[in-house]
Amino acid sequence: MAALRHEFYETDEKLTLSVFDRGADPAQVSVKFEPRALSYQHGDKSLQLQPLKGQIDPDKSDFTVGKVKVEIRLVKAAQGRWGGLVGDAPDPLTTFAPTPATATASATAKQRKNWEGITTEILSGEKEKTSDEDPNVGGDSTVNSFFQKIFADADEDTRRAMMKSFQESGGTTLSTNWDEVKKAPVEVKPPSGSEWKKWN
């Protein structure tokens, strides 16, 4: 049997598993959900995952078959990050009875961002975003095309001002006035309520 390459990303509510099975026939794909196990079958290709790191709700979990991969959405029975796909983790539903102290501690822990998971989520999103979903994508969004038009129609000094102000301000300022911009480095002006931090 051929093993299948797979990867996942998670939120507190669900874990999304991508099984890379190019050209899978939806009629031949079988996915079986159990509270702590998942099995994927397509012809001679299979993937068995157990025990899952946490408990899932088999009735709410589902999958879709795409051209390149099969996306399996596992709905978690208890909110929280697993940090992995399989393993002997204590099941939060059977072993966790929160006392006021642990409830507070877990609430604090829940507010920490899982940057690795977020990065994986962004990188594994093979679907191209449209400009409706993300204004930074493509040239057909109104804001993007507006700035492209200004840049294309501008003279050399205006273009120079736009590039210098945008780069030096870390993307927080866009100026078209070269006489003002050429005098000194452009200050970083983060949105109100935000604080600028420089990363090495």
Rank of each mutant, 00 (worst) to 15 (best):
I72W: 00
V68P: 01
F20S: 09
D25N: 15
K53L: 08
T108C: 05
V143E: 08
K110R: 12
L38Y: 01
R22E: 15
K129V: 03
A107R: 08
D132G: 09
G66R: 04
F8W: 15
E168D: 04
G66C: 05
P92M: 04
W199G: 07
P191W: 11
T108F: 13
T158P: 00
E195V: 14
Q50A: 14
A89V: 12
Q55H: 04
S131P: 05
Q28S: 12
A3I: 07
N144P: 00
G66V: 01
K76E: 04
Y9A: 09
S30G: 11
F33C: 07
R159F: 07
A27N: 13
K149N: 15
V70M: 02
E121Y: 01
T94Q: 10
G83N: 10
V181L: 05
A27M: 12
Y9F: 15
N200K: 15
A27P: 06
S124A: 14
L52Y: 00
K53R: 14
L123S: 10
D59M: 13
P185L: 05
S124C: 07
G87D: 01
Q79R: 13
L47K: 01
M163K: 14
T172I: 11
A2L: 10
G170K: 10
A97H: 08
S106M: 09
A77S: 08
T16F: 00
T95P: 02
L17F: 02
K127M: 11
S18I: 07
G43W: 11
G171T: 04
E156D: 14
A89H: 07
S131Q: 12
K164H: 03
K110M: 09
Q111Y: 02
G54H: 05
S165D: 00
K113Q: 10
V181A: 01
K149Q: 15
T95S: 14
N114V: 04
D157P: 00
S61Y: 10
Q55D: 07
E116R: 06
D91F: 03
G80M: 06
G66P: 00
L49G: 02
A101R: 12
G125N: 15
